[in-house]
Design a protein around this nucleic acid. Structure first.
Lengths: 185, 185, 185, 185
DNA sequence: AATGAATGAGAATTCATTCAT
DNA sequence: AATGAATGAATTCTCATTCAT
């Protein structure tokens, strides 16, 4: 039946959900296909390989994070305190109804040392995340200090998402984002 | 040639290394067997299934964490400040040369939602971890406050291990354990 | 955008190249399509199936061999010795820059016993080839003798093409065609 | 059912038959498995990959050719004329009831340019084949002459096997081996 | 205690082909 | 005339597991 059932964007979004909630290795192309109401072969119409799909998913998340969250740190229309508040709020919103936590964090622990391509993409994502956090607090701290604080803050967020997922406890991220909001206090 | 080539303890230790550094799904029984210089079939002499082996590995890690680290929080021979220092130091030591970071944290993100048995064991581990952190600071904070701080501290440590692994950067855990040491300041 | 990108003749020629150099099974419709700058579906505008395309390729080669080479054996305008010389020369020229050797010989070993339709077409090709060689020497040998010599000559040529291909050695066919030229000596 | 159903030698022999009669690409692991009364997975118990199996099959044929045929050319116990006769006879016998002709010749045309490993093995086989033919006639011809004759003879044999297969005509090889026997006349 | 042999289930991927536009 | 979308069937290969020795 050759009428379009899905498009690349939707495939990536649906794959993103599965990779995030079930992991990369545990999600088979077959799982993705049936979740998209497609045949396995059709998945390959949109993406040449599972790894390419995984990479596309990471890149798409990176893109949307950049647009929705990182960019706030560089928004000249807001003052530093407002940037921070908005950043923290958006971050919280982002993961609020995102079952499975952070795809990139999850993948980080699943594929580091196994799939170098993903590792590189995840590192790029995290580097930019840290840079945005650094920017948020750059007015108050030295470059070195803010780098450390940014790294610790990212770790705090990722750790919170891990605990939150394991215990199905939405408070964890709330607190982590509250900590972000206090970064200039 | 029925001379014993390995024992259960060694099998668990070696499996622990592989699960930690390569993940659970990505580590096959075949990998474990050859890492132990055994045949695949022989692995099944010691463990009835891969999942049982995984569970044993988590339990063993839990046990050794309890003995080496959590117990410090309850050591009546030390004053609270010394407990904290020792705890932080031991924690740092524990992961210092442990390639791959924290098995339980890694597994948490890999198997949550997939293998309920592991999820339960990991939750028990983390619950005890949190309890020990709580105990360390119980003199200074209310029960509620110390619960929150303990959860955040665990998150901080796990997040640090994630970042550390991804960037091959040993400073991350050092800083996290330094934060632990400051918990009573 | 329904402007004609290719015609049947070109499709056959390009397919011929791919089948000859990569084999029938190893050449996919997808390979053919991209080599022709077409979509897979478009290949099916010109040919109802891969097998039909294969058959068309064999027939086209047969046709061009008949016109360019076999016909020489029956050219009443030349004397037997000149026919032979021209035949040998044309044969050598034909394969000179034809990467991959002889499509029909290659297919003979790839599809005999697998695709009866091809087998039949290849047999017809070879039967005519043998007949033309026979004709070339019919003046000097009995019917039986010339049949044997013709078969051996065809075998020599095909064997030479095989060795030539494997060792990237253009001398092999040169020698075989020299042998053809000497057939009346 | 863990009682041994086959051994490596038998697997190679049976695979050899299938590769020879149906070609490499057209013979699936599944075909091999069912021809051996094994499951697909069991084939991988003996060989790590299809390509490794193919290579083993070529090497085994090379080995048996060396032992049974090429060696005759270097047999000091025979005089040159007897060597030649024996060589020609053995060659004929070898292919007499070998449905499908010459595995290595067949593969040569199927995989040249596709599977470099096979190409190399086939070249080695043919180089030794040529060397043995050269040795047979070294007494009568110069090194250069005998190299040419050996190459032509190999081509003749392979071509004969091709024609023989296509036309199901056992006379082709008989004649080729007769030509071998006349090489010193 | 140790293992070689065997396997069913499932993984990723390819391929020839169809069809609505 | 050309193609994007879709697919069933098949391919190579992996994996956890069993069992007779």
């Amino acid at each position: 039946m050759p009428s379009q059932k899905i498009n690349l964007e939707q495939l990536i979004e649906k794959s993103s959900y599965l990779f995030r909630t079930r992991g990369y290795h545990y999600t088979s192309i077959s799982d993705i296909a049936s979740y998209c109401n497609l045949s396995k072969a059709s998945v390959y119409h949109y993406m040449p390989s599972k790894q390419a799909l995984g990479a596309a998913v990471i890149k798409e998340l990176h893109r949307s994070f950049r647009n929705e969250i990182f960019s706030i740190a560089f928004d000249e229309d807001l003052n530093p305190a407002d940037r921070l508040k908005k950043y923290a709020r958006k971050l919280e919103n982002f993961f609020e109804d995102r079952e499975g936590g952070c795809l990139v964090g999850n993948l980080a622990l699943e594929v580091t040392g196994i799939i170098p391509e993903f590792e590189k993409l995840i590192r790029e994502f995290f580097v930019e995340w840290i840079a945005s956090l650094k920017q948020l607090i750059s007015g108050k701290f030295s470059d070195q200090e803010s780098q450390v604080i940014a790294e610790e803050t990212l770790a705090q967020i990722q750790g919170a998402l891990m605990v939150q997922r394991l215990f199905s406890d939405p408070k964890q991220l709330k607190r982590a984002s509250a900590r972000v909001a206090e970064l200039l206090d």
